[in-house]
Design a protein around this nucleic acid. Structure first.
Lengths: 201, 201
DNA sequence: GTCCTCATGTAAACCGTTACATGATTTC
DNA sequence: GAAATCATGTAACGGTTTACATGAGGAC
């Protein structure tokens, strides 16, 4: 029983031996799009994985008196990873601040909020373009037994997600820019002296 | 400067006064789809919000010697909330265990993994149906000045997300069930005695 | 009488981020 | 010589979950 971070590390190590530093940089691309960790989290976790014999390491003398450790997955580590992959993930609570802001949109200045969503839209469009370019680099769909299948599958997911977000941002911007503003409900404030409060628009 | 949880609470309180208990249950539906918190987190946060004068409360004697507190948003609280809504959200690192498992799919038994994705697909289809039913209950698109616009906008986002997930799960299942399994790359194990290791399929 | 809902809190543990701390190698 | 990169760790802090703790009211 390891934490999900442990399995994320094992997932990378199954692709080949890495140093702690390389693992930390691997948490950037493409892994960083669905799992991240800083080196300050990775090094202690590696120590735990070594203690659990899921991972081993070799001291590699780099140029000079460098104490570089190259970690590899062990047989038991690979077995644990294989088991974990097909287990249902424990549901994590969703926390999406942008959606929360959308939920509170009725309180905001629509022009200001549209500006925020336009900037988010741009970011999603940029990321989509990068993902599309990456997918174009694949000759075809890799088979599931191939290491590259994972990359392709997560890329597929990322492209779908970005498209969904782009559509939503566009819809939000459209609503905020061209939408009518029919009813302005009241906010009941504390101290509860005034029952209704007209909008300051 | 409050935490996002504080703004989530203010977002709910802007819709009307609530007790701490009601706030905790409000973190179920629909808020729970994009922000959650337990009562053990809500009560201390309410104390902080009261200390910051963003929120006030009235002791309401329920039936019997009940010490129930009804919280309301204050003028400064509403002002802070309005400012927060249009500020760009700080980017949170994505952590999606299912996508991580997809990244490690090449190690797994495809039939077992397909089973997992079928169960996830079912869950997304159920949630989509619930969302669609909710959207059908709206007479039309609420204007952005309406309190209900937030509900509609987040529902829109949720429906788009579920559709995206459903498409991805279906693609994954299709790949795992009908896909070919051409190349089986090796895993370099520790101790590094064997360079290649054929698959146990 | 027992269980469920309403109601409010605290404490311990865990996960993750930021900051602190060190030091060699390479590039400009 | 300064800065960037490679390299490994620890400490403090903040946010979140789980568990502990209590108690009234209503339904069965």
């Amino acid at each position: 029983m390891t934490s999900t971070l442990g399995y994320a590390i094992l997932t990378v190590l199954a692709r080949g031996p890495r140093s702690g530093y390389e693992l930390a940089t691997a948490m950037g691309h493409p892994l960083g799009y669905f799992w991240t960790a800083r080196h300050s989290q990775i090094h202690p976790e590696l120590q735990r994985l070594v203690a659990a014999a899921l991972v081993g390491f070799e001291q590699v003398p780099g140029p000079g008196p460098q104490r570089k450790k190259i970690y590899s997955i062990t047989g038991p580590g690979l077995a644990a990873l294989r088991e974990w992959v097909v287990e249902p993930p424990q549901p994590r609570p969703e926390r999406d601040e942008l959606v929360l802001k959308a939920y509170a949109a009725w309180l905001a200045d629509p022009a200001e909020l549209a500006k925020l969503f336009r900037s988010r839209l741009e970011a999603h469009e940029l990321r989509l373009a990068a993902f599309e370019a990456e997918r174009a680099a694949f000759p075809g769909t890799p088979g599931y037994g191939s290491e590259r299948f994972g990359e392709y599958a997560t890329l597929w997911c990322g492209i779908g997600y970005e498209n969904h977000r782009i559509a939503w941002c566009r819809w939000m911007i459209d609503q905020l820019e061209t939408g009518r503003c029919p009813d302005q409900p009241s906010v009941s404030l504390y101290p509860s002296c005034e029952a209704t409060k007209p909008s300051e628009s």
